[in-house]
């Protein structure tokens, strides 16, 4: 088994992603993720010193739109799927701490 990822890493990432995993799931995913990372090790065997990192597979840049106002949703429609709304706003539980 690779030492690239531990069950603590998986639990930490799960917590950041707000995923509730039981210990058996943590072990299961640790093994599966380790296998994926091992597969990626094949690439590390290559000499890539002259290869620029690739963020996207497409040979495209500058897909831009003009700064023109388009359609908006009416307030009622914007709020239609909200579990709770108040005064035209989305009502949410009290937030602990402030936004990053």
């Amino acid at each position: 088994m690779s030492t690239r990822i531990t069950s603590d890493d998986v639990a930490h990432v799960a917590q950041l992603a707000r995923l509730e995993l039981d210990p058996a799931q943590v072990e299961l995913f640790t093994g599966q993720l380790a296998a994926i990372l091992e597969h990626a090790e094949d690439v590390e065997a290559l000499d890539l010193a002259d290869v620029a990192p690739t963020s996207h597979p497409y040979p495209l840049v500058n897909v831009l739109r003009p700064d023109e106002v388009g359609a908006t949703l009416p307030n009622a429609e914007a709020l239609a799927a909200a579990p709770q709304a108040e005064g035209g706003r989305f009502r949410v539980p009290t937030i602990l701490g402030e936004a990053p």
Partner: peptide, 25 residues
């Protein structure tokens, strides 16, 4: 005139949740 990633208006002081579109939400 519009938002970073959609055509909803970038305008301060309007009624809440009126300058929104599906991308904004």
């Amino acid at each position: 005139a519009t938002k970073m990633f959609s055509g909803a208006p970038n305008h301060f002081g309007d009624d809440p949740n009126t300058n929104v579109d599906p991308v904004t939400l």
